[in-house]
Computed example of a mutant assay.
Amino acid sequence: MGEESLTARNLARVQEIYGRYAQGDRGALFEALAPGVSWNSVGDGLLPWAGSRKGPKGVRAYFAALDAEAEVTRYEVEQVIAQGEWIATLATVQIRYRRSEQSYRYAKADFIRLVDGQVVDFREFYDTAQACRDHACGG
């Protein structure tokens, strides 16, 4: 299979996953996780959900930590860039922190590697310094 076909198939897969996630359905994401998925969210040591995790169980732990602290109230994908196994998404996410009941918006970038339709690598980047100020890290 050529790279164009691989790119198109992976792009469609990620759009399906993000489309369902934006509607509050994480099922497509959990179904797409490879057994050895590597999941990384910047801000390790600052934010409870941040850090590196392995496998579907680790990804569920990421979401459990995130859900304990905040609620994602809006998720808007602005741009998707694809090449072969790698997909990059630029998005805006709105978070309501449970402790303060305050909502904040963040621009973020995700990098996802898919092999045979499964997520094998996920890397999430956003302004963790701002998120820490908004979330009152350590407070």
Rank of each mutant, 00 (worst) to 15 (best):
G2F: 02
E3G: 12
S5A: 15
S5R: 05
L6Q: 08
T7Y: 02
T7G: 05
N10V: 12
N10E: 12
N10G: 08
L11I: 02
L11C: 11
R13T: 10
E16H: 13
Y18T: 13
Y18P: 03
G19T: 11
R20V: 10
A22T: 04
A22L: 03
Q23T: 04
R26L: 13
R26C: 09
L29H: 08
F30P: 01
E31N: 12
L33A: 07
A34N: 03
A34P: 05
P35A: 01
G36V: 00
V37C: 04
V37F: 03
V37H: 01
S38T: 00
S38A: 06
S38F: 01
W39E: 02
W39A: 06
W39Y: 14
S41L: 13
V42Y: 05
G43S: 09
G43I: 05
D44G: 06
D44T: 12
G45E: 00
L46H: 12
L47E: 01
W49E: 09
W49Q: 06
W49T: 05
A50G: 06
K54G: 07
G55S: 09
G55H: 04
P56R: 06
K57H: 03
K57Y: 03
K57L: 13
G58Y: 11
G58T: 07
G58H: 05
V59S: 13
R60C: 02
R60G: 00
A61H: 01
A61C: 02
Y62E: 06
F63T: 08
A65D: 07
L66K: 03
E69I: 00
E69T: 14
A70E: 02
E71K: 10
Y75V: 00
E76A: 07
E76P: 00
E78P: 01
Q79T: 08
V80M: 06
I81A: 10
I81N: 00
Q83K: 08
G84P: 11
E85A: 15
W86D: 14
I87C: 05
I87G: 04
I87L: 08
I87Y: 07
A88T: 13
A88Q: 05
T89Q: 13
T89S: 14
T89H: 04
T92M: 04
V93K: 07
V93Q: 11
V93H: 08
Q94E: 15
I95S: 02
I95G: 00
R96Y: 10
Y97E: 03
Y97F: 15
Y97G: 10
Y97W: 15
S100H: 12
S100E: 03
S100V: 07
S100G: 07
E101V: 08
Q102G: 06
Q102I: 11
R105Q: 15
Y106W: 02
Y106E: 07
Y106N: 04
A107P: 09
A107W: 10
A107V: 13
K108C: 15
A109E: 09
A109C: 15
D110A: 14
F111C: 11
I112M: 09
I112Y: 12
R113K: 15
R113L: 07
R113G: 03
V115N: 11
V115L: 14
D116I: 04
G117P: 05
F122V: 06
R123A: 09
E124V: 04
F125Q: 12
Y126S: 15
D127T: 14
T128F: 15
A131R: 07
A131K: 08
C132E: 01
R133C: 10
R133E: 11
R133I: 06
R133V: 06
R133S: 13
D134Y: 10
H135I: 05
A136S: 09
